[in-house]
Design a protein around this nucleic acid. Structure first.
Lengths: 238, 238
DNA sequence: CGCGTCATTGATGTGCATCAAGTGGTGTGG
DNA sequence: CCACACCACTTGATGCACATCAATGACGCG
């Protein structure tokens, strides 16, 4: 996730260590889109990057930090939609209605790159690979959400938690962190909201996974002792 | 949904009665994208338009008919992802991996417009409104899937069925059909797969809605007697 | 220390799955 | 034209997973 680099004025995608995750383009293409990122923004833990109803202008590429994406329901309670980490894009929800539907709160201090949507449109016309990549990003998000839909429709509590942990650990691993150790940034309640479970059920699912020797859990520090067993729980969906 | 017009060689988006639903662009823009749709294809009831694993080349705009979109799971059973009707787009799932993940089967005889993806890319560069619209389509699909995720995570059987019926009736209504009468194209089992419920539960949910005077059900003919009550069941989500 | 937040654990209740039987409509063949 | 089979669906009985209610524990902080 790299060290924080607050308020730097040097914005250089081509030399960003997240380049391959965030914008996998050729060196050539990078020279032509060097005006894509207009700014960096730091977001303190607990601060909102997106707010429901806000006008859609920008996409945000997460440079560091960890975000919870959620809806505020009419009842006032929040519904967690997902969690995003470095190299991932926030803000695609605003495209349809020109307003953001989601809220995005930083669960740890974060830094994001600001990508004005107009700019993406213009540059996409010059750089087909960028156009294509924007589509891929959206398609990826779509597939992710549909997998989630599947999970909620067909898997039980233990399987849902297993899938959640496996997904997190894989994403952390892609970013150079241990595949077997992870530190949860969110509460059990937020996990529950995301997985369609109550907090007690999440807790019991953790307990079960510990009892079967698959996990070691100390508060939010998770140690995956038996990745194969964890994977086996996630029934081959597709 | 308009009459079938099999194998016509005249492809004229600008004068299509689904224009506003499918491609809401200006007359001016239409002249510049008149090569977007390269062909029409008829799909007989029961035939597959998309097959899991097929190379992604085209998007399809549904001109008439009704499709079931589903995955074939490793276990061999099918998981319904959604249902698409005229004016809607099929095929966005293939963008990420260049292969289609979904299967799409026609639940009634259908006709689709073939939109080569390369062509969309090229024309998007000339017509910003088209580029924008492709993004909107994907964003819409994303929002739809996320609402589904919410439904599966938080609503009970009756509420899920209510939401499903209300959504179908609204979409039919947008296409000029009665808001209160609809004919289901899919089996109870397919509804159940989509809603994360077993067939018996779907059946019981129908029975409940009939008992409370909200619906009149005769096999697949649904009459919505009390739309307000049906809407009230769909707890204000957002 | 006392309080708040987060998490775990236990006891009980409920909604949906599962198992099982039966209905009604449709198609087929004698 | 009826007997039979098949399919989609409905209905009932029972079991189980998760929700709910309630109590307690662990940690951090003013």
């Amino acid at each position: 996730m790299g060290p924080l680099n607050p308020n730097t004025s040097i914005i250089d995608c081509a030399n960003c260590n997240l380049r391959d995750l965030c914008l996998p383009l050729s060196k050539d293409d990078f020279e032509r889109i060097d005006t894509l990122v207009t700014a960096r923004r730091t977001v303190k833990r607990g601060d909102l990057l997106l707010r429901n109803g806000a006008i859609f202008n920008n996409l945000f590429a997460i440079r560091s930090g960890f975000f919870k994406i959620y809806l505020t329901l009419a009842s006032g309670q929040e519904q967690v939609i997902g969690f995003q980490m470095s190299g991932e894009i926030i803000g695609l929800d605003g495209l349809e209605s020109d307003q953001h539907v989601h809220n995005a709160v930083a669960l740890e201090d974060a830094e994001v790159c600001v990508l004005p949507y107009d700019r993406i449109g213009e540059l996409s016309r010059e750089v087909p690979a960028l156009q294509r990549h924007v589509h891929v990003l959206m398609s990826r998000e779509l597939v992710r959400t549909q997998n989630m839909m599947l999970l909620l429709g067909t898997q039980n509590a233990e399987e849902r938690l297993a899938a959640f942990l496996l997904n997190l650990s894989q994403r952390f691993h892609e970013r150079g962190y241990s595949q077997s150790e992870l530190v949860l940034r969110m509460t059990r309640e937020e996990i529950g909201s995301y997985l369609g479970l109550k907090i007690e059920t999440v807790s019991r699912a953790f307990t079960k996974l510990v009892a079967s020797g698959i996990l070691d859990v100390r508060h939010r520090d998770i140690h995956i002792l038996n990745p194969e067993a964890l994977g086996a729980l996630v029934k081959s969906q597709i």
